[in-house]
């Protein structure tokens, strides 16, 4: 019982756990994308750049203002969320009546500009961000050495995903949001300020990306391309889960993290490709995604 499929069992358990941790990032990011797409019908290509801005905001808060990790976890998403709101007001709000493609191109362009500015300012090697003292160290699980911080990432991601899902599915605010998705004009007729709600939703989606960035800062070096590495995978996650489906993107995020983790053991060269293979298969069998409604 030491070997499973020719791989030592401890190694396999370790990989499952690591997959779950990466899945936590996929889930958090695809959640924000799903919220934005669900309500704004905008394919937010700037999401990766906003994830990166979250990490940089945490770094700047620490190094320029001496504000530590825990406060940054709250402040960085607010700051980045506000920049999102400005972007929405200034640019994105003009595109709601046009084809999806315009929103995609606009946000893609914005992402390139944002990443370019950060690269010019901070270089590409990245900046160090220490793991907070409370979360440093590691547990010995027997089959692997588990850094406390990574455990915290999974827990934080789960709480965040669950809270978002509850807000959207179970509260009055969420009901307004969902109603506005179905028929904005009617909701507005009931006296709800739909444009403001849309703006705040975009800000919220962006803030979710920024939380992911703060959580990622101590694990990966804080560098301008950290988001672009992730964003394409996250889009595949959203497509597999079903565009706009909140629960779908959360579950798919975690599941694909695990699939990718296992691929890294059995066929490492394919680990960047496997998610897209799954995406192709899902699109052929269920074009609306696993949890989407056609």
């Amino acid at each position: 019982m030491d070997d499973l499929f020719g791989i030592p069992a401890p190694l396999l358990f370790g990989q499952l756990l690591l997959g779950l941790i990466n899945g936590a990032f996929y889930a958090m990011l695809s959640l924000g994308l799903a919220v934005i797409f669900g309500l704004l019908n905008i394919v937010n290509m700037a999401h990766g750049a906003q994830f990166m801005m979250g990490a940089f905001a945490a770094w700047m808060l620490l190094n320029w203002l001496g504000i530590g990790y825990w406060a940054a976890l709250l402040l960085a998403p607010i700051i980045v969320g506000i920049t999102g709101i400005i972007l929405e007001k200034a640019f994105i709000s003009r595109l709601y009546k046009l084809d999806h493609l315009y929103g995609l191109l606009l946000t893609f362009g914005l992402a390139l500009i944002i990443e370019g500015v950060f690269r010019n300012e901070f270089g590409s090697s990245g900046l160090p961000y220490r793991i907070p003292a409370e979360l440093s160290g590691a547990w010995d699980l027997g089959f692997m050495f588990m850094p406390v911080y990574r455990g915290w990432v999974v827990i934080a991601a789960l709480i965040l995903c669950l809270a978002t899902w509850l807000i959207i599915e179970k509260t009055r605010l969420g009901a307004y949001l969902r109603a506005a998705t179905e028929n904005a004009a009617l909701v507005q007729a009931f006296g709800v300020n739909v444009p403001r709600m849309v703006t705040l939703t975009y800000g919220f989606g962006v803030a979710l990306a920024a939380v992911g960035g703060v959580l990622a800062a101590p694990i990966y070096s804080v560098n301008p391309q950290m988001g672009s590495n992730l964003i394409i995978v996250v889009f595949a996650v959203v497509v597999i889960g079903g565009m706009g489906s909140i629960l779908g993107s959360i579950l798919t995020g975690f599941a694909l993290g695990i699939v990718e983790g296992l691929t890294k053991v059995f066929w490492p060269e394919a680990s960047a490709t496997v998610i897209f293979v799954i995406m192709a298969i899902v699109l052929l069998a269920r074009p609306a995604g696993l949890f989407g409604r056609a």
């Binding site: 030592p8 401890p10 190694l11 370790g14 990989q15 690591l18 997959g19 941790i21 990466n22 692997m144 990574r150 694990i219 990966y220 950290m226 590495n229 992730l230 983790g261 890294k264 053991v265 490492p268 060269e269 394919a270 680990s271 960047a272 490709t273």
Partner: peptide, 21 residues
């Protein structure tokens, strides 16, 4: 040895764990 996809990889923990084991 493990060969990982370049430049699409930023999480090396899985490979480090394989190396350790």
């Amino acid at each position: 040895s493990v060969k990982y996809p370049f430049p699409a990889t930023s999480d090396f923990s899985s490979f480090l764990l394989q190396a350790q084991s």
